[in-house]
Design a protein around this nucleic acid. Structure first.
Lengths: 343, 343
DNA sequence: GGGGAGCATTGGAACGATCAACCCGTCCAG
DNA sequence: CTGGACGGGTTGATCGTTCCAATGCTCCCC
């Protein structure tokens, strides 16, 4: 089999070069323990000499697995500090890489008209599985994908559905907020306000419970110290103004927020009132976004261990694709607190 | 050919369902104009009924093209406001999507030891081409890939190499800075300082030239108003302190920075000196990062039209993969100015 | 009615990998 | 002495698609 110069080497090329059969070369790559050591060396030398790497399409056609993991990217929201994805995506790519997988990005809404991008990718065998990240907004994605038998691992607990059996990894928001409360209390704060998300938000309520419980455990009151609304800069600012618009002795001395976006809103409102974050009032955010790190004064924030999350997600993915039963459905990781100038 | 229930439909399945041959089904998808209208309808109905979509691995094996575009993600630098990638990646995924392509992410350094991740992906036919984004750091990637015959489109001019012939798309940094100068001058500023990157940085010098030239055109001096160093928060702060450490009448009244990171550094230094951005001194950044939008006071910044860049990159990619000669090697897009509180 | 021309459609052969069956010699237990 | 397992390897079949050459069919004109 002679091939013209520009063409990439194949199994057959390597086999001829090494003086063995195609399958032996294949074994050298996939089950080297089957070969006699000297044969293995000979094949490996031939591979190196020719600069051969197996054609992914052919391998994928035969084995029915693409070694690709799908990840849907959602439009970045302007004016929102939520740069979680950037960090997570990178960690994920890194983790999947060492596991021999790659990450495939796609977009598209899953309208009910049958043009579900998840389905399309899976049917065409373009990906082996998905990583779901939108669950932190509590959408019904997970349940739908489970119903369709789509293999996936979620970043985020199945909040709404207690009997969901799919694998997931999540960060303990409640514990993160608890850390923040302890930090603020240790700095002498007694009136710590909460600025969070709507009551309907289960994840928001989880984080908030860390505030409520730890405050009470410290013997501190939480009444008239809570505001809940949408996750925007604007709401954060409105909430802060409202919470500060009381008699001096009732004013909070610290703001604990469910997101950096809200915290940035609080800072903006304080600025309008001539108050200085970190000196007059403490502010703590959640997510440890880049904005939190570079703004002035730098924002204290709860940091999610996204790198660990990614590693754990990939581990689950491996189990899932090996058709091993996933031991425990989910795993919760603990965040840390990045203390900066605003507290 | 009978297949068990769980198995996905193939061309043959559809062909049997529609009462035609496999090739006819293939034509219905790839060259529908070859079919008689009624046959086409019959086949399309069968496809819809079975929920068939072509197996990408098989298609890719035959056509020798994966319809995937590789994009290397670089580790996100902490303490840097550079969230360009987030926006760009999303736009890219969107653009490639409508062109029938997907984006494949990978990491890894290209050490000279032959384990170049670009090479590996290309040799295994995993991707058809690459999108290069690191050229804005002026690395020699482009030249190397050109030498190896790797198809790619770069986001960023081939700064170092005037005779590079690969397709590229870039944003006119010089024009962006010119915009910023005009904005500041129109607000009455006469002493506008530049905080930028090292002299060796060609892209940094390009942006800086917008400042130098426009200032001179406005009859304003630039002497003793320039600082150049690394792209960090810390250097931005040091530069600002140095530039302000002069007699009052020589002090700059505005800072124009080569990046948001530097601008954030300037803001931090001003804060230390008791100066207020937007009131005492103006500050303008470059990139319009999320941090610029949410910090307080919000940072005026030059915004790159990343969405347009992505569209243009994908257009070039199309030409490249169709083996059409790329008309002009590169294209330059014009940025805009997002005016906010700091100016 | 015979013979192209032209079009819609077909069967067979790749594409490059893995899987399953099989090869023959050797070694071991029964 | 014999049946079987094991060694390291080969060969043909197979995955689902597209390319290629060839087929059948219709239509039209002489």
């Amino acid at each position: 089999m002679s091939r013209h110069a520009g063409s990439a080497p194949t199994l057959a090329t390597v086999a001829a070069e090494a003086g063995v059969s195609r399958q032996t070369v294949s074994n050298a790559l996939n089950s080297p323990e089957l070969l006699r050591p000297d044969t293995l060396v000979r094949v490996q030398e031939a591979i190196a000499r020719l600069g051969y790497s197996p054609n992914r399409a052919a391998r994928s056609l035969r084995t029915r697995s693409s070694h690709l993991v799908g990840l849907r990217v959602v439009p970045a929201v302007e004016d929102s500090a939520n740069a979680l994805m950037d960090r997570f995506v990178h960690s994920l790519v890194e983790s999947t890489g060492v596991a021999g997988y790659h990450v495939l990005l796609f977009t598209g809404e899953e309208d009910d008209g049958g043009t579900d991008p998840y389905d399309a990718l899976l049917r065409s065998a373009a990906v082996d599985a998905f990583v779901l990240t939108d669950t932190f907004r509590e959408n019904p994605q997970a349940a739908r994908l489970t119903r369709r038998g789509v293999p996936f691992v979620a970043f985020g607990r199945p909040w709404g559905d207690a009997r969901a059996r799919h694998p997931w990894v999540d960060v303990d928001g409640r514990a993160g907020v608890t850390l923040a409360v302890e930090h603020l209390v240790s700095r002498g704060h007694t009136r710590v306000a909460w600025v969070g998300w709507q009551k309907g938000s289960l994840i928001g309520e989880d984080r908030r419970s860390g505030w409520v419980d730890r405050m009470h455990e410290c013997g501190l009151s939480t009444s008239r110290l809570s505001a809940r609304g949408e996750d925007t800069l604007d709401f954060g600012a409105r909430a802060a103004r409202a919470l500060l618009d009381v008699s001096p002795e009732d004013r909070p001395t610290a703001f604990l927020c469910a997101s950096d976006t809200l915290a940035m809103g609080v800072v903006r409102a304080m600025d309008g009132l001539g108050l200085r974050p970190g000196r007059d009032l403490a502010v703590v955010g959640f997510d440890d976004s880049i904005a939190a790190q570079v703004c002035t004064p730098a924002l204290t924030s709860v940091r999610q261990p996204l790198e660990e999350v990614a590693v754990e997600v990939v581990r689950c993915l491996g189990e899932l694709l090996a058709h091993r039963p996933v031991a425990s459905p989910g795993r919760v990781l603990v965040p840390t607190l990045s203390v900066r100038a605003t507290s």
